[in-house]
């Protein structure tokens, strides 16, 4: 569903993403990990069509941004690293905007929307987004994406700002989406989430993929069956720590 081939992004002399290959299949949760500044968000921005790659190719559900940008965007869901929304709109107006812009079937969406509101304990939609806390914005952003049931999901640090209950609900829903065949790519700094939820994990450092595979594969690379993801991650990214 999500394919990146030799993906490269340069900002002047800085190579933020360097010749990256990525393949996230249908019915799979792929955790994309890396230290701060490794290139995770830049990669997600390229995969979601908000940043043009310097070179390389991207395929989302067998379509390319060059030809089918709007069709791809209609089919994907993106929860960005910061829940930025129009602050002078009320929550309900933002939802209405999303429904309109994605041409959603009202009957289906309304039912899902109400279920999600109940699950995430959302009862603040009649107030302006500008008055929301970070967590409230994050909840609104998450339900505005999940109510569409997209086949491909990109989530950049989705649990940041969410309370424990909402984070649990999100994890359950992502599991459910995976079982229904969605391809999910998420980044997180909470390694426990990645370890428990992901089918495969990719670790990026300085824009390059350092290692990729299931938890079992990663343990083999770490040469220690008992290693936790945290140990493996710290081991593989330790050069950054010493350099930085």
């Amino acid at each position: 569903m999500i394919i990146a081939k030799a993906l490269t992004k340069k900002f002047g002399n800085l190579t933020a993403v360097d010749n990256l290959y990525l393949h996230v299949r249908s019915g799979e949760i792929y955790s994309f990990l890396g230290p701060n500044g490794a290139g995770k968000t830049t990669t997600i921005r390229m995969l979601t069509g908000s940043l043009s790659p310097t070179s390389g190719a991207i395929e989302i559900d067998r379509k390319r941004y060059e030809q089918d940008e709007i069709t791809i965007k209609r089919g994907i869901g993106v929860v960005p690293d910061e829940p930025r929304m129009y602050e002078n709109l009320k929550g309900i107006e933002f939802i209405e905007f999303v429904k309109g812009i994605y041409h959603l079937d009202p009957k289906l969406t309304d039912q899902r929307f109400n279920e999600l509101c109940a699950a995430f304990d959302i009862d603040f939609l009649q107030t302006y987004i500008g008055d929301y806390s970070h967590g409230m914005k994050q909840k609104l952003m998450v339900i505005s994406v999940l109510m569409r049931r997209p086949k491909v999901l990109f989530l950049d640090e989705p649990t940041v700002g969410l309370d424990a209950r909402a984070a649990r609900v999100l994890k359950t829903l992502l599991d459910h989406f995976r079982n229904e065949g969605s391809a999910i790519l998420l980044t997180t700094h909470i390694l426990e989430i990645a370890e428990k939820m992901s089918d495969r994990i990719g670790i990026i450092r300085n824009g390059k993929m350092v290692v990729e595979g299931s938890m079992e594969d990663l343990r083999k690379i770490g040469n220690n069956q008992a290693n936790s993801l945290e140990d493996i991650f710290l081991d593989l990214t330790s050069k950054d720590a010493s350099a930085g």
Partner: peptide
């Protein structure tokens, strides 16, 4: 909001979402 939230979708199907 709880009341509106339950009914919100039915009436708020966005036509001309960008313009609105």
């Amino acid at each position: 909001v709880e009341v509106v939230g339950e009914k919100s979708g039915a009436k708020n199907r966005g036509s001309f979402p960008l313009l609105k």
